[in-house]
Amino acid sequence: MNIIVCVKQIIDPEIPAAIFKIDPNAKRAIPPDRRAFIISDYDEVAVEAAIRIKEAKGGKVTVLSLGSQSVIETIKHCLAMGADEGILLTDPLFEEEDRSLTAYALAMAIKKVGEFDLIFCGRQEGDWDAGQVSLGIAEILGIPSVNPVKKVEVKNGTILVKRIVDDGYEVIEIPCPALVTVSNELGKPRYPDMKGIMMAARKKISIWTSQDIDAEPSKLGPSAAKVKMLKLYIPVNEARCEFVEGETPEEAGANLALRLRKAKLI
Protein backbone atom coordinates (compact mmCIF):
# COMPACT_ATOMS: atom_id res chain seq x y z
CA MET A 1 0.00 0.00 0.00
CA ASN A 2 1.33 3.38 -1.01
CA ILE A 3 -0.31 5.96 1.18
CA ILE A 4 -0.14 9.74 0.98
CA VAL A 5 -1.21 11.80 3.96
CA CYS A 6 -1.91 15.52 3.60
CA VAL A 7 -1.10 17.39 6.77
CA LYS A 8 -1.35 21.07 7.59
CA GLN A 9 0.46 23.12 10.18
CA ILE A 10 -1.84 25.48 12.04
CA ILE A 11 -2.00 27.80 15.03
CA ASP A 12 -3.13 25.76 18.03
CA PRO A 13 -6.94 25.79 17.79
CA GLU A 14 -7.32 25.32 21.54
CA ILE A 15 -5.82 28.72 22.40
CA PRO A 16 -8.47 30.26 24.68
CA ALA A 17 -10.64 32.99 23.19
CA ALA A 18 -9.34 35.41 25.85
CA ILE A 19 -5.84 35.51 24.33
CA PHE A 20 -6.77 34.89 20.70
CA LYS A 21 -5.87 37.87 18.48
CA ILE A 22 -6.26 38.71 14.84
CA ASP A 23 -4.77 41.22 12.45
CA PRO A 24 -7.89 42.54 10.71
CA ASN A 25 -5.89 44.19 7.91
CA ALA A 26 -3.87 41.14 7.00
CA LYS A 27 -7.01 39.06 7.74
CA ARG A 28 -5.03 36.54 9.74
CA ALA A 29 -4.74 35.28 13.31
CA ILE A 30 -1.67 36.40 15.23
CA PRO A 31 0.16 33.44 16.77
CA PRO A 32 0.92 34.14 20.45
CA ASP A 33 4.39 32.57 20.07
CA ARG A 34 6.36 30.12 17.98
CA ARG A 35 5.25 27.07 19.96
CA ALA A 36 1.68 27.81 18.94
CA PHE A 37 2.27 26.10 15.56
CA ILE A 38 1.17 22.49 15.63
CA ILE A 39 -0.09 19.79 13.30
CA SER A 40 -3.83 20.12 12.66
CA ASP A 41 -5.27 17.51 15.00
CA TYR A 42 -7.33 15.49 12.51
CA ASP A 43 -4.27 15.33 10.27
CA GLU A 44 -2.31 13.76 13.09
CA VAL A 45 -5.08 11.14 13.35
CA ALA A 46 -4.80 10.67 9.56
CA VAL A 47 -1.07 9.92 9.94
CA GLU A 48 -1.96 7.42 12.66
CA ALA A 49 -4.49 5.74 10.33
CA ALA A 50 -1.87 5.47 7.59
CA ILE A 51 0.78 4.00 9.88
CA ARG A 52 -1.67 1.41 11.22
CA ILE A 53 -2.33 0.21 7.68
CA LYS A 54 1.37 0.15 6.91
CA GLU A 55 1.97 -1.94 10.03
CA ALA A 56 -0.75 -4.39 9.01
CA LYS A 57 -0.12 -4.59 5.26
CA GLY A 58 3.30 -3.13 4.61
CA GLY A 59 3.95 -0.29 2.21
CA LYS A 60 5.04 3.29 2.39
CA VAL A 61 3.62 6.45 3.95
CA THR A 62 4.45 9.81 2.39
CA VAL A 63 3.52 13.01 4.19
CA LEU A 64 2.65 16.03 2.08
CA SER A 65 2.25 19.55 3.41
CA LEU A 66 1.80 22.95 1.82
CA GLY A 67 3.02 25.95 3.76
CA SER A 68 6.10 27.90 4.78
CA GLN A 69 9.53 26.60 5.85
CA SER A 70 8.34 26.22 9.45
CA VAL A 71 6.21 23.29 8.27
CA ILE A 72 9.38 21.17 8.21
CA GLU A 73 8.87 20.73 11.97
CA THR A 74 5.41 19.31 11.41
CA ILE A 75 6.70 16.94 8.73
CA LYS A 76 9.48 15.77 11.06
CA HIS A 77 6.87 15.03 13.70
CA CYS A 78 5.02 12.78 11.24
CA LEU A 79 8.27 11.04 10.25
CA ALA A 80 9.00 10.44 13.93
CA MET A 81 5.53 8.89 14.30
CA GLY A 82 6.51 6.42 11.58
CA ALA A 83 5.90 7.97 8.16
CA ASP A 84 8.64 7.21 5.60
CA GLU A 85 9.08 10.34 3.56
CA GLY A 86 8.07 13.98 3.60
CA ILE A 87 7.33 16.59 0.96
CA LEU A 88 7.03 20.30 1.63
CA LEU A 89 5.26 22.39 -0.99
CA THR A 90 6.33 25.97 -0.66
CA ASP A 91 6.04 28.90 -3.04
CA PRO A 92 4.86 32.52 -2.65
CA LEU A 93 2.26 31.65 -5.31
CA PHE A 94 0.64 29.18 -2.90
CA GLU A 95 -0.19 31.81 -0.32
CA GLU A 96 -3.81 32.48 -1.03
CA GLU A 97 -6.91 32.31 1.07
CA ASP A 98 -8.90 30.37 -1.53
CA ARG A 99 -8.84 26.67 -0.62
CA SER A 100 -9.37 25.59 -4.24
CA LEU A 101 -5.84 26.77 -5.00
CA THR A 102 -4.48 24.68 -2.12
CA ALA A 103 -6.39 21.66 -3.42
CA TYR A 104 -5.02 22.22 -6.91
CA ALA A 105 -1.40 22.45 -5.71
CA LEU A 106 -1.73 19.37 -3.51
CA ALA A 107 -3.38 17.39 -6.32
CA MET A 108 -0.58 18.34 -8.74
CA ALA A 109 2.01 17.29 -6.16
CA ILE A 110 0.24 13.95 -5.72
CA LYS A 111 0.32 13.46 -9.51
CA LYS A 112 4.03 14.04 -9.39
CA VAL A 113 4.46 11.49 -6.59
CA GLY A 114 2.74 9.16 -9.02
CA GLU A 115 1.86 5.81 -7.54
CA PHE A 116 -0.59 5.72 -4.65
CA ASP A 117 -3.41 3.52 -3.43
CA LEU A 118 -4.85 5.68 -0.74
CA ILE A 119 -4.83 9.36 0.24
CA PHE A 120 -5.63 10.37 3.79
CA CYS A 121 -6.70 13.84 4.86
CA GLY A 122 -8.15 15.27 8.05
CA ARG A 123 -11.90 15.86 8.10
CA GLN A 124 -11.21 19.59 8.31
CA GLU A 125 -8.36 21.90 9.17
CA GLY A 126 -8.36 23.13 12.75
CA ASP A 127 -7.75 26.80 11.95
CA TRP A 128 -10.08 28.02 9.21
CA ASP A 129 -12.35 24.95 9.40
CA ALA A 130 -12.74 25.05 5.61
CA GLY A 131 -13.57 21.35 5.12
CA GLN A 132 -13.08 21.20 1.36
CA VAL A 133 -9.43 20.76 0.35
CA SER A 134 -9.59 16.98 0.66
CA LEU A 135 -12.70 16.68 -1.51
CA GLY A 136 -11.17 19.11 -3.98
CA ILE A 137 -8.10 16.90 -4.31
CA ALA A 138 -10.29 13.84 -4.95
CA GLU A 139 -12.29 15.74 -7.55
CA ILE A 140 -9.20 17.03 -9.37
CA LEU A 141 -7.66 13.55 -9.38
CA GLY A 142 -11.02 12.01 -10.36
CA ILE A 143 -11.05 9.40 -7.58
CA PRO A 144 -13.77 8.37 -5.10
CA SER A 145 -13.79 9.82 -1.60
CA VAL A 146 -15.43 9.05 1.72
CA ASN A 147 -15.77 11.76 4.35
CA PRO A 148 -15.46 11.58 7.37
CA VAL A 149 -14.52 8.13 8.63
CA LYS A 150 -13.68 6.53 11.96
CA LYS A 151 -12.26 3.23 10.76
CA VAL A 152 -10.32 2.08 7.70
CA GLU A 153 -9.51 -1.47 6.68
CA VAL A 154 -7.84 -2.80 3.57
CA LYS A 155 -9.24 -6.08 2.23
CA ASN A 156 -8.18 -7.74 -1.02
CA GLY A 157 -7.30 -4.51 -2.71
CA THR A 158 -10.48 -2.71 -1.74
CA ILE A 159 -11.00 -0.34 1.13
CA LEU A 160 -13.63 -0.81 3.81
CA VAL A 161 -14.44 2.28 5.85
CA LYS A 162 -16.89 3.33 8.53
CA ARG A 163 -18.34 6.69 7.57
CA ILE A 164 -19.78 8.79 10.38
CA VAL A 165 -23.35 10.01 9.79
CA ASP A 166 -25.68 11.95 12.07
CA ASP A 167 -27.29 8.94 13.74
CA GLY A 168 -24.60 6.27 13.47
CA TYR A 169 -22.28 5.05 10.77
CA GLU A 170 -22.23 3.39 7.35
CA VAL A 171 -19.89 0.68 6.21
CA ILE A 172 -18.73 1.62 2.72
CA GLU A 173 -16.58 -0.33 0.30
CA ILE A 174 -14.52 1.63 -2.21
CA PRO A 175 -12.00 0.63 -4.84
CA CYS A 176 -8.39 1.87 -4.85
CA PRO A 177 -7.17 4.48 -5.41
CA ALA A 178 -9.38 6.55 -3.15
CA LEU A 179 -9.29 9.45 -0.73
CA VAL A 180 -10.53 9.17 2.84
CA THR A 181 -10.90 11.92 5.43
CA VAL A 182 -10.32 10.93 9.01
CA SER A 183 -12.06 12.01 12.21
CA ASN A 184 -10.90 11.87 15.82
CA GLU A 185 -13.17 8.87 16.52
CA LEU A 186 -10.48 6.74 14.84
CA GLY A 187 -8.45 6.90 18.03
CA LYS A 188 -5.58 8.78 19.58
CA PRO A 189 -2.45 9.29 17.48
CA ARG A 190 0.73 7.76 18.90
CA TYR A 191 3.50 9.82 20.46
CA PRO A 192 6.83 9.57 18.68
CA ASP A 193 9.33 7.64 20.82
CA MET A 194 13.10 8.20 21.04
CA LYS A 195 13.82 5.65 18.32
CA GLY A 196 11.26 7.26 16.03
CA ILE A 197 12.74 10.69 16.54
CA MET A 198 16.25 9.42 15.77
CA MET A 199 15.10 7.55 12.67
CA ALA A 200 13.24 10.64 11.47
CA ALA A 201 16.51 12.58 11.27
CA ARG A 202 17.67 10.24 8.50
CA LYS A 203 14.48 10.29 6.46
CA LYS A 204 14.12 12.28 3.28
CA ILE A 205 12.20 15.55 3.06
CA SER A 206 11.82 17.02 -0.45
CA ILE A 207 10.99 20.65 -1.02
CA TRP A 208 8.96 21.45 -4.12
CA THR A 209 7.85 24.74 -5.66
CA SER A 210 5.07 25.39 -8.17
CA GLN A 211 7.48 24.60 -11.02
CA ASP A 212 8.41 21.22 -9.59
CA ILE A 213 4.79 20.09 -9.72
CA ASP A 214 4.11 21.45 -13.21
CA ALA A 215 1.36 23.72 -11.92
CA GLU A 216 -0.15 26.12 -14.44
CA PRO A 217 0.70 29.62 -13.18
CA SER A 218 -2.75 30.84 -14.23
CA LYS A 219 -4.31 28.46 -11.72
CA LEU A 220 -2.37 29.88 -8.77
CA GLY A 221 -2.05 33.23 -7.04
CA PRO A 222 -4.60 35.93 -6.24
CA SER A 223 -5.98 36.22 -9.77
CA ALA A 224 -7.02 32.57 -9.77
CA ALA A 225 -9.02 32.88 -6.54
CA LYS A 226 -12.73 32.18 -6.79
CA VAL A 227 -13.56 32.93 -3.19
CA LYS A 228 -12.26 36.10 -1.54
CA MET A 229 -12.27 37.04 2.11
CA LEU A 230 -13.67 40.53 2.58
CA LYS A 231 -13.35 40.79 6.32
CA LEU A 232 -12.13 38.97 9.42
CA TYR A 233 -13.37 40.03 12.85
CA ILE A 234 -13.94 38.84 16.39
CA PRO A 235 -17.64 38.66 17.25
CA VAL A 236 -18.83 40.40 20.40
CA ASN A 237 -20.74 38.37 22.91
CA GLU A 238 -23.31 40.27 24.91
CA ALA A 239 -24.45 37.62 27.37
CA ARG A 240 -23.97 38.66 30.99
CA CYS A 241 -23.79 35.90 33.53
CA GLU A 242 -25.79 36.11 36.74
CA PHE A 243 -23.86 34.11 39.33
CA VAL A 244 -26.06 32.21 41.75
CA GLU A 245 -24.31 31.92 45.10
CA GLY A 246 -24.53 30.09 48.40
CA GLU A 247 -22.46 29.37 51.53
CA THR A 248 -21.75 25.88 50.22
CA PRO A 249 -21.95 24.31 46.75
CA GLU A 250 -25.07 22.47 47.97
CA GLU A 251 -26.74 25.71 48.90
CA ALA A 252 -25.74 27.25 45.57
CA GLY A 253 -27.26 24.23 43.80
CA ALA A 254 -30.54 24.64 45.69
CA ASN A 255 -30.54 28.37 44.97
CA LEU A 256 -30.00 27.67 41.28
CA ALA A 257 -33.12 25.48 41.27
CA LEU A 258 -35.09 28.31 42.92
CA ARG A 259 -33.69 30.89 40.51
CA LEU A 260 -34.53 28.83 37.42
CA ARG A 261 -38.00 28.14 38.78
CA LYS A 262 -38.53 31.86 39.33
CA ALA A 263 -37.42 32.51 35.74
CA LYS A 264 -39.93 29.81 34.71
CA LEU A 265 -37.18 27.79 33.06
CA ILE A 266 -37.89 24.59 34.98
Partner: peptide
Protein backbone atom coordinates in the same frame (compact mmCIF):
# COMPACT_ATOMS: atom_id res chain seq x y z
CA UNK B 1 -18.58 31.77 8.38
CA UNK B 2 -17.12 31.18 11.85
CA UNK B 3 -13.40 30.36 11.64
CA UNK B 4 -10.79 29.37 14.23
CA UNK B 5 -13.41 27.20 15.85
CA UNK B 6 -15.72 30.20 16.19
CA UNK B 7 -13.26 32.59 17.81
CA UNK B 8 -13.46 34.79 14.69
CA UNK B 9 -15.90 35.32 11.84
CA UNK B 10 -14.90 35.71 8.20
CA UNK B 11 -17.02 37.20 5.44
CA UNK B 12 -16.42 35.64 2.04
CA UNK B 13 -17.70 36.33 -1.43
CA UNK B 14 -17.55 33.97 -4.39
CA UNK B 15 -16.76 35.52 -7.74
CA UNK B 16 -17.74 32.56 -9.89
Amino acid sequence: KPVYGGKAYAIYVCQT
